[in-house]
Design a protein around this nucleic acid. Sequence first.
DNA 1: GCTCGTTCTGAAACCGGTTTCAAACACGAT
DNA 2: ATCGTGTTTGAAACCGGTTTCAGAACGAGC
Lengths: 335, 335
Amino acid sequence: MATIRDVAREAGVSPATVSRVLARPEVVTPDLREQVLQVIERLGYAPHPIAASLKTRRTGKILVTVPDISNPFFAKVIRGIEGGAVAAGYAVVLGDTRDLPEREELFGLMLKRGEVDGLIFLGHRLPKVIAALVQEAGGQAPVVNACEFNSELSVSSAHIDNRAAAKAAMDALYAAGHRHVAVLSGPAQSPLTRERLGGARASAQRHGALAELQLLEGDFSLASGHARMHELLQTQSKATGIFCHNDEMAIGALAALREWGLSCPDDVSVVGFDDIEMASYVNPALTTIRQPMEQIGQEAAQLLLDTIRNRDAPPRRVRLSWELIARGSLGRAAK
Amino acid sequence: MATIRDVAREAGVSPATVSRVLARPEVVTPDLREQVLQVIERLGYAPHPIAASLKTRRTGKILVTVPDISNPFFAKVIRGIEGGAVAAGYAVVLGDTRDLPEREELFGLMLKRGEVDGLIFLGHRLPKVIAALVQEAGGQAPVVNACEFNSELSVSSAHIDNRAAAKAAMDALYAAGHRHVAVLSGPAQSPLTRERLGGARASAQRHGALAELQLLEGDFSLASGHARMHELLQTQSKATGIFCHNDEMAIGALAALREWGLSCPDDVSVVGFDDIEMASYVNPALTTIRQPMEQIGQEAAQLLLDTIRNRDAPPRRVRLSWELIARGSLGRAAK
DNA sequence: GCTCGTTCTGAAACCGGTTTCAAACACGAT
DNA sequence: ATCGTGTTTGAAACCGGTTTCAGAACGAGC
């Protein structure tokens, strides 16, 4: 592999000039520039980014940590992040934390050690290493929270208004005449879940149905949606409307309803959250809250890159819009 | 940030010793080692992996390129790769190629420039940069193909026997009495598609139904499954059995059948491929070929790490097992 | 023709580790 | 005490770029 010194020697210039030809071509005399470029071409010289990193302290990589890459919602967000990052000349390092704090710490170290230029985390927990970093930097650390938002963290974030969206989902159920509604939530400790539950409760209260509201805790997986729905049906709940905190749990719930010989939407209505692609292909198609998943990712990438470029900008919050998508899984309550 | 020289000075030893304490503790006298470790602890010293990379030529990162991260099959495989990589102390850099050759080249450069130690690609096309690298290395390049296999590439690969699995899927349709079968394939240029089509044709031929076999080309997306199925139904095809090259297209096809008022499996049977989690939750549940997705990823990671550690091992092929999973979407053909 | 200011280029330091090589040291055998 | 062997340590080179700083070259103005 040719080095910058090989090129310099061959072109009869100094390594500094070669470096400049590649990094700031405009400061080099055109003739010389051309000559150097030709040698670069001839030798097939490819600069070694690792070596450059050592001096510049830029790696051109950002780390994205996610609790589960195989969750279709996260996958879309990551796609958005990746797109934004690559467009800006950055590569994405992927960390699948599996919701394990030790793995989060492990990935956190990568930022601390300077292996990556920044971190976008999809989730609610900040590794201790990173929390310390953010503390020191007084909120100017290159760390962004996507999808969720935790006011204690003082980092930039890109997300929708989960509370309002959840409220809208519930409003739709009540508007269709449902009185007994169950909410199948995400993990209780997540701020995201709390936001959505807050919105759900507000709607229930407004419709004078708070007493009839049932809460079930899931973990955003198909299996948990299926299992919780089974359990609910076993209790002979009067619920005719189910609001699920994501589409996968909603699809799991639909399967459970079928297994009990119940019809959706005739017997029970289901509303999901996210509008993953699958939502419009299941039977019945899911009424759900659409989140602009890729856009959330893009915005998160943008926020991070802004922070990286301009270290003394304060943390920002980007709120994206959501939309209630009406499909077959929500019908009028039987009288 | 403390450097290794700070630690050395503080501990009254040379930087070389500090380096050894961390990399090969057993060669350092226990007393000295302890003393150095204490200073490291006290200063909160964290080694700078980029600096180490420059000398060692190891980055501790592997690149994974994938045509679409939001495809649930790929997402699972990536999860497997990531798990295997992290367990071995490697991080995963993610490249979403969107099936664009220019993006593949871009990511290929990362390996060529030494930004990553190896490449696992999920797909069938090798970027030119990498093909050249493989050529030079005589098949010993740190490159692995996962899920697919292209005999021209001379790189290691981890995958199932797609031909045999496709044959089994078709056999199941014929065994259930279907004579007119349509295959909804992946993109025609992919070797994977050719393998599966080969298996499908072999089965058709064996059952004397080659003349009735219909071929439709999709792109593995829900939307293409939906669209191709619509088109097929419009032609008043006599097909009562559909073999889809992945589950997402199968689920798209199920939706199209419903829209035409047709029942699956009463009117038309559908068989998928992959057994993504969603396959057992849709209505009807999909009969499909199960691929060990995470395991494919793990094996691919293992293959790559083996190649990285031992550069003169020849390319290997790991064949994983598959299984036909019978569920509701495949029923007996009407007489 | 000389001075001044501007633009361009090269020498060398630097980034922060690892590794080689030789010196120092410890210890057992002679 | 001397020698030989094996182990442990430190000095310095090295990885391959970037960047600073000073000097060279050049053109404009007088």
